[in-house]
């Protein structure tokens, strides 16, 4: 492990550990369940992971820059509700999509300004916006739901292209673009640097606030993208859709090895985390395990993932 780490760096080892975890869960499920190891089911797991990942991707960037965004899930709720309303009124998926992306991006910018301009602590500021966005969604929907969207739009969530679900392409696209941004562009390096040490970053001339504003904006934008995939998949919106997603999204990011203290982690890790989470729930459904066990198993997986990181890291520290 040490040699590997020296050669490929911490992150490669962390990712390898996650692949190992995916493989272990996969093999166990393949042995014990019928129907698990089929191409259809693997695509099914990937499709379920994609919604979690899309919502988690922006938040991952925020965390890499040392911030936090608790409002992603209620941002999704409000964006989805407004987009559904617009689509119902105009019949136009384009207007709906613009509404979702516009509304969620504005909320993201508001979060970013609260953190950069007003210098509010991110955890609390976004806890405040969480409630405000949720309340606006309640107010707008008045307890009702909006359902039935154009078939073309629904392809975004339910369609297949060359045998692979459309949301999986979206996941791949965001992963590639996000990885390019964080790994190949200067901006990405700056985001990591800000997360690792904001003071040093500022002293070395990085426009800290502008980068922070950028990651909150992207987090908002991705909530809008996830809202559209949600609408297309479920064909209905109500004001309670986002809330149950918040903890799974944070869990996926943490299982993926991104640190809450900034500067450590990657989108690749978040993809792995989302897949592990979906895999576990898929396996429990196929085994007909009572879903009362789900929180317990998810909590245990999370602890196993961080302990595995610790074990590999600890050994190297001891050796030198």
């Amino acid at each position: 492990m040490t040699a590997l780490r020296d050669r490929f760096g911490d992150e490669a080892v962390a990712f390898a550990l996650r692949l190992l975890l995916i493989a272990a869960v996969g093999v166990a499920l393949a042995v014990f369940t019928e129907g698990f190891l089929s191409a259809a089911n693997i695509l099914n797991v990937l499709r379920q992971a994609s919604l979690i990942f899309l919502l988690a991707s922006g938040l991952t960037l925020v965390l890499l820059a040392g911030g936090f965004d608790l409002s992603v899930a209620s941002n999704l709720t409000l964006a989805a509700c407004l987009a559904a309303g617009v689509m119902q009124a105009t019949g136009s998926p384009t207007f709906g999509a613009l509404t979702a992306l516009g509304c969620s991006t504005v909320a993201g910018i508001a979060n970013g300004l609260a953190v950069t301009l007003l210098r509010l602590p991110p955890f609390l500021a976004t806890y405040g916006t969480l409630w405000i966005l949720q309340g606006l969604a309640f107010q707008y929907m008045g307890g009702n739901e909006i359902y039935g969207f154009p078939a073309g739009f629904r392809q975004l969530g339910t369609g297949f292209l060359w045998g692979v679900p459309v949301p999986v392409y979206l996941m791949a696209m965001v992963l590639v673009l996000g990885t390019l941004l964080t790994r190949k562009l200067n901006i990405g390096y700056e985001i990591y640097a800000i997360g690792a040490n904001p003071v040093a970053a500022r002293l070395s001339g990085i426009p800290v606030r502008r980068r922070q504003l950028l990651v909150y904006t992207l987090s908002g934008l991705m909530a809008g993208v996830a809202a559209l995939v949600y609408l297309a998949r479920v064909n209905s919106a109500d004001s309670g859709i986002g809330e149950p997603l918040l903890l799974p999204v944070i869990a996926a990011i943490l299982i993926g090895g991104t640190s809450l203290f900034g500067g450590v982690g990657s989108l690749l890790g978040t993809v792995a985390g989302a897949i592990i989470l979906s895999l576990v729930i898929n396996g429990m459904n196929l085994l007909n395990v009572r879903s009362t066990w789900q929180p317990l198993v998810v909590g245990a997986v999370l602890l196993v993932a961080v302990l595995a990181d610790l074990a590999s890291r600890g050994r190297r520290e001891r050796i030198g």
Binding site: V297, V298, G299, L303
Partner: peptide, 22 residues
């Protein structure tokens, strides 16, 4: 073990919640 408290307690949140349900 110097693990981040947020992560640790999110894990035990799941475990406690699951145990109560089970």
């Amino acid at each position: 073990l110097t693990l981040p408290p947020f992560v640790v307690t999110l894990g035990t949140l799941g475990i406690a919640q699951g145990a109560a349900l089970v």
